[in-house]
Structures are given as structure tokens and as C-alpha cells.
Design a protein around this nucleic acid. Structure first.
Ligand code: ZN
Ligand code: ZN
Ligand code: ZN
Ligand code: ZN
Lengths: 146, 146
DNA sequence: AAAAACTCTATAGTCGCTATAGAGTCAAGT
DNA sequence: ACTTGACTCTATAGCGACTATAGAGTTTTT
């Protein structure tokens, strides 16, 4: 059961170049080669690539995935690290969600500011964007002394 | 009122290199130079950079910001485009939020799968990640025929 | 004058791919 | 055997929005 890179791409829903990229990044082990130097993949590669794609669909970074693969490759280990990693990832996602929601609220506020007037000059949106006190910059920026 | 790049950076809460980058990208006009070839900025630059940073804090891309600046530079125009751009941006943010929420739900489901067992091999999380049917791939992937 | 702090340009790196160029390989048709 | 076409190979550059570095020059402070 040896398939070529194109078939693997089809099976995994991932581009050929991406597969080669994963190989270069050390996520996929180097496969056997045919006489004509084509990559030949087996079941293990297929399954591993699906694992990677699954993790990617969950927005994990390649380095998170590398860590998970490393754990998977040593099945005798304690799975505590898996939990830790997943937990950290969930928190990252949560943080991004709340940041985006705050963002959206601000954007919607901004949208209200255009009273449907005509000129750009009078548009409340652009005025709002030009106003530095429009929304709190306290979160990221705490060094005001100088 | 001419300030140097470092002061502008402090005022705008943005790195020196980033300011130079904005200049190269055409978002900030080339400033005057001192005898020693240092950039010298005036009020207009400060205000414009604050506008840019404000937009960036709303996660707008530089090309969206470029468009807004272009509109702002021609104040007689109709502000309809401003609205359109903002509306599109809000929708993008909304889409990202819902994608992230779906993601989070999946991640939380996954987290439940680890029953606190010990070995990585038996960990439900890794098993879940290895299972291609774990979550619907119908959204992105519709070409199953071949 | 010397040291520290700032600025200059140019270049490469980040992440997770995507796109391109130019060459080689393979299977099918004639 | 020859050609066509689909596939694959390596190597390199580009995306976006920066960040980091090197090596030189300028200004300010001591
Ligand atoms: Zn308006
Ligand atoms: Zn604001
Ligand atoms: Zn577990
Ligand atoms: Zn899943």
C-alpha cells in the first residue's frame, strides 16, 4: 500500500506543497522513494497527516502539533501534558474570542456614528477613528511616563 | 513642532521600525529630514499615525486602512464607501468569532474525552484527534468524488 | 573627548502556507 | 518509438504585519 503525494493530498484534503512543507518541518517523517525519486507513503503517513490536519482545523500551531505528535510517538508517557497543551490552547481561543467581541462592539459603535451624512469630512466614523480617546487604550499601553 | 521618530513612537504606542514600515508602505507620507538625515515629524503625521493605530487596534488590514486614509484625504467625497468598508470589516469579525466559537466547542468536547487516565496511548484526546470523523469536515471540504 | 542614546539603511526572519520556474518521471495513446 | 499530458522533483520567492539584526552615522550627555 504505497501511494504518491498527489493521492495523499486528495485523501487528506491538503495541498501537495503543504505535505512537503510538513516533511521539511519535521512533522511528517521522510517517506520511501520510488526509482524515479517520487515520495511513497504508507498507512502510517496517511493517519499522521490526518491527525495533523485535524489539529490544524482546530487552529493549533505547528509547534503545538509537533508537541502532540511527540507525545503520541511515546505512548507510555503520562497524558498530563496533552491536557495541559489542550487547556492552554482553549484559553488562547477564549482570549481571542473575547478580544474579537470587544472589537466588534467597538466597530458597531463606530458604525452608529455615521448619521448618513454625505461628505467624508463630516462622517462620524472617520472622526471616531481619528479620536484617540474613542476607546480605551489602557489594556495594551501602560507606559505613559517619559 | 518637529519631533523625531522615537518620540513619535512613544506618543503613538508603536515601534520605531513600524513607523518606518508604514512609510515604506505608503501609509505615512515621507517626513522632512534634519541635517543629520533624521526624520522630522509634525502634527499631521502624529494625527495620521494615531488614526492608523486606532484602525489597527480594530484589526483592520493595512489595505483597509489605506483605503480609509485615501477617503480621508479627499474630504469632499461621499462617505458611503466608509460605511461599506466598515460593514465588511464587521462581518469579517463576526465570521471569525463564530468560527472560533465553533472551534472552542470542539476543543472543549475533546477535553472531556480524557478521563484522567495515565498513558498517552489510552488518552481520549489523542484518539479524538486521530479520528477523522470526529468533527464534520463538510464545510471546507466538499469534493469527495474522484 | 568619550560614552550613551538615538537614528540611519539594508537585510533576514516569523508563521503556515501558496505560487512559480525549470527539470525530471510515468502512463496512455498512436 | 514517440508524443502528449499528468504528475512529481527541487529551489526560491511571496503573503501580511511586523520584529530582529548588523553596521554605520548623529546627537546628547558626561
Ligand atoms: Zn458617514
Ligand atoms: Zn476606538
Ligand atoms: Zn488523557
Ligand atoms: Zn474533531
Amino acid at each position: 500500500m504505497e501511494i504518491r503525494i498527489g493521492d495523499l493530498a486528495k485523501r487528506s484534503g491538503c495541498e501537495v506543497v503543504t505535505i512537503r512543507y510538513y516533511e521539511k518541518e519535521g512533522l511528517l517523517p521522510k517517506p520511501a522513494r520510488s526509482g524515479g525519486n517520487f515520495r511513497l507513503y504508507g498507512e502510517a503517513h496517511i493517519e499522521r497527516l490526518q491527525f495533523i490536519r485535524h489539529c490544524r482545523s482546530l487552529d493549533m500551531t505547528l509547534s503545538e502539533i509537533r508537541a502532540l505528535l511527540g507525545l503520541r510517538d511515546n505512548p507510555m508517557q503520562d497524558c498530563g501534558e496533552v491536557n495541559t497543551l489542550l487547556e492552554a490552547h482553549i484559553q488562547q481561543v477564549e482570549m481571542r474570542v473575547s478580544a474579537l467581541l470587544q472589537l466588534k462592539r467597538h466597530l458597531v459603535d463606530l458604525r452608529e456614528k455615521c448619521s448618513g451624512s454625505r461628505s467624508v469630512e463630516a462622517c462620524g466614523i472617520l472622526q471616531g477613528l481619528g479620536n484617540r480617546n474613542c476607546h480605551g487604550e489602557s489594556a495594551t499601553n501602560s507606559q505613559t511616563s517619559g
